[in-house]
């Protein structure tokens, strides 16, 4: 009996001792943290995507609170709402954020683009690109091994069975992670309000493009001539759209109908390029 009492007393004594010690240590060696850091972190979406340029949400929260030069509107997935909240907490002024969405500048599906060789290595675009620059005839096009889809943490980018990644506009937050990993820099971030997009990244000459891909921009310049607003230019055999002019002035894009290879397309997300054209435009 007496042994049991000793045991209980010893445990209570130890418990009390360490309890007091911990509470003392907590007061004495407390780490001073700006409480706003935690507030900001709570406001952030915590996707840990790294779109802000910091390794994770906590790192950005710390930077935006402690460093006066870090703007409060860097969280791309959070968009304006989060920017306003962060600005409120930190006392900074948030500039308006333009929503961005990932856009794949290639339409070279398995069916449309020529494959020159048989690649049996790791299913990864960077790896495929190391061997002779990839197994595709076009040296600018999508390799189709889905490195971008693997890094997308919002489930917004999926590889289609046709071999081209497809962006889901509802889920894409514009973090730009996919654009960073793409070895051919095919993915860019654009405003979702643009009217037309150019589904090609090839800076090769027209004849070479034709040989390797049925959907490529051959740099013929018809679009540049036809556009009444001067929004389209051809640089390095590739059409480039100035989306700000396009968004403000153009109501009826003529370039769409004139493009002979249909490299210029209406801006629709969520479908494989080439599948949407026929139904939307009534073209064959």
């Amino acid at each position: 009996m007496i042994t049991a009492i000793y045991a209980v007393l010893a445990m209570v004594g130890l418990g009390l001792f360490f309890g007091f010690f911990i509470s003392f240590a907590n007061k004495k060696w407390a780490v001073e943290i700006d409480p706003r850091i935690h507030e900001v972190e709570d406001a952030l979406p915590k996707g840990q995507c790294g779109a802000c340029g910091y390794p994770g949400c906590m790192a950005y929260a710390e930077a935006v609170v402690t460093n006066a030069d870090v703007p409060p509107n860097l969280c791309a997935p959070g968009k304006d709402a989060v920017a306003q909240k962060v600005a409120e907490i930190t006392g900074k002024k948030a500039e308006a954020m333009e929503p961005k969405i990932a856009f794949v500048r290639c339409a070279g599906t398995y069916e449309k683009a020529v494959r020159t060789s048989l690649y049996k290595g790791i299913s990864d675009c960077v790896s495929a690109g190391m061997l002779h620059g990839g197994d595709k005839g076009c040296t600018y096009g999508c390799l189709g091994y889905g490195t971008c889809a693997k890094v997308c943490m919002f489930d917004a980018l999926k590889m289609s069975p046709e071999g081209i990644p497809v962006v889901n506009p509802d889920k894409c937050t514009g973090c730009g992670k996919c654009a960073t990993v793409c070895p051919r820099s095919i993915i860019t971030l654009v405003s979702p309000e643009i009217k037309v997009k150019i589904n090609c990244n090839s800076k090769d000459k027209g004849a070479f493009v034709r040989k390797n891909c049925k959907m490529g921009c051959i740099g013929c310049g018809i679009c540049a001539k036809e556009c009444p607003h001067g929004a389209v230019m051809v640089e390095n055999f590739l059409a480039v759209v100035d989306s700000s002019i396009c968004k403000e002035k153009c109501s009826d894009p003529v370039c769409l109908a004139k493009c002979p290879t249909m490299a210029i397309r209406p801006a629709i997300w969520g479908v494989v390029p080439g599948n949407e054209v026929a139904e939307k435009l009534g073209l064959s």
Binding site: G121, I122, D124, V126, S127, M130, T180, V181
Partner: peptide, 19 residues
Amino acid sequence: TIVHYIRQSKAKNSMLRAA
């Protein structure tokens, strides 16, 4: 394909460095 994996790591690290 161990060497291929290693080469992939090297390539991705150098991409990151360049970025």
